[in-house]
């Protein structure tokens, strides 16, 4: 399990990184390496050049400015998990991260690396979608911004074009309370089904809601109809029943030895109900 040979560069600016990525056909960026290095070890990934993003200071950090929280793509998951400002600004992100890996993988794994890897069972893509995050992408033509919901395209597939890198995530202040629940074989494993729920109630009315399922399909699935019902009917027990009846169970395509599609389908309503109730009961109000 030794990787196939590759070359290695560690640029210190985004511009240099982009130049290097453009210079080799099979060049590939490496962030925290928690997914890529195992793929190298199994020789499932065989880049000719690894462009290490760990030496680019501008890619790390958490900054709140004008109501927008900007998290550098190379910010370690452990830093985000421990961040008070993230906890205040986007508690759902912290709730999701509590389910991601283990302390040593979070110490090295990055927030952007996990998003760019886009494992269909990963927690962070669902959280980004539920938070309506903006993904900031740098390429040779400059920066562009993509909504999280448009960023995640399929299994290990994102809006990132060859030669581009994810530089930051931008989050508006989270609207409403939230919860992140999952069923997994062990704590820290990818979920069989994950649910990110966010509900904003004001004056008894539900003004905003997000319900995002992960682990069930090629990418996380936003439950648009269920969200609409929540917003129309409020987060009442009756509305929740209607929400559960409107979940996109047809979207389940993941069918594996570890969990059949049917099992995933029956977990979804149960987990969604628990997630909405947990969100509403949550003490963490942003």
């Amino acid at each position: 399990m030794k990787p196939a040979p590759f070359d290695y560069e560690a640029p210190t600016t985004v511009a240099d990184a982009l130049k290097l990525l453009g210079s080799h056909e099979d060049a590939r960026p490496i962030a925290g390496g928690q997914s890529l290095v195992p793929m190298l070890a199994f020789r499932l990934a065989r880049p000719s050049l690894l462009v290490d993003l760990n030496r680019i200071p501008s890619l790390s950090g958490i900054e709140e400015k004008g109501g927008v929280l900007r998290i550098g793509a190379m910010t370690r998951q452990a830093k985000v998990l421990a961040s008070d400002v993230v906890k205040r600004h986007a508690p759902l992100l912290v709730q999701a991260l509590e389910n991601v890996g283990h302390p040593p993988t979070r110490a090295r794994g990055t927030i952007g690396g996990s998003c760019a890897h886009a494992d269909p069972a990963a927690e962070l893509p669902s959280a980004m979608i539920a938070l309506d995050a903006t993904m900031v992408i740098a390429g040779s033509g400059g920066e562009r911004r993509v909504r999280a919901d448009d960023f995640f395209i399929g299994a290990f597939e994102t809006a990132l074009q060859p030669g581009e890198i994810l530089v930051a995530l931008e989050l508006s202040k989270q609207q409403g309370v939230s919860a992140f629940l999952e069923v997994s074989a062990r704590k820290g494993d990818f979920g069989i089904v994950t649910v990110a729920a966010r509900v904003a109630v004001k004056d008894g009315r539900c003004i905003d809601a997000a319900l995002v399922l992960g682990g069930i399909a090629e990418r996380s699935v936003r439950c648009a109809e269920a969200e609409r019902i929540l917003k129309e009917q409020g987060a009442t027990p009756k509305a929740i029943d209607a929400v559960l009846a409107a979940l996109p169970l047809d979207a389940v395509t993941m069918d594996s030895r570890s969990a059949s599609a049917a099992h995933r389908r029956r977990l979804i309503p149960e987990l969604c109900r628990r997630a909405i109730e947990a969100a509403l009961a949550s003490q963490v109000t942003p």
């Binding site: 069923v183 074989a185 069989i192 570890s258 969990a259 059949s260 099992h263 029956r266 977990l267």
Partner: peptide, 9 residues
Amino acid sequence: LPLTTERLL
């Protein structure tokens, strides 16, 4: 065996 969540459910 093994007693997965699926089998238990």
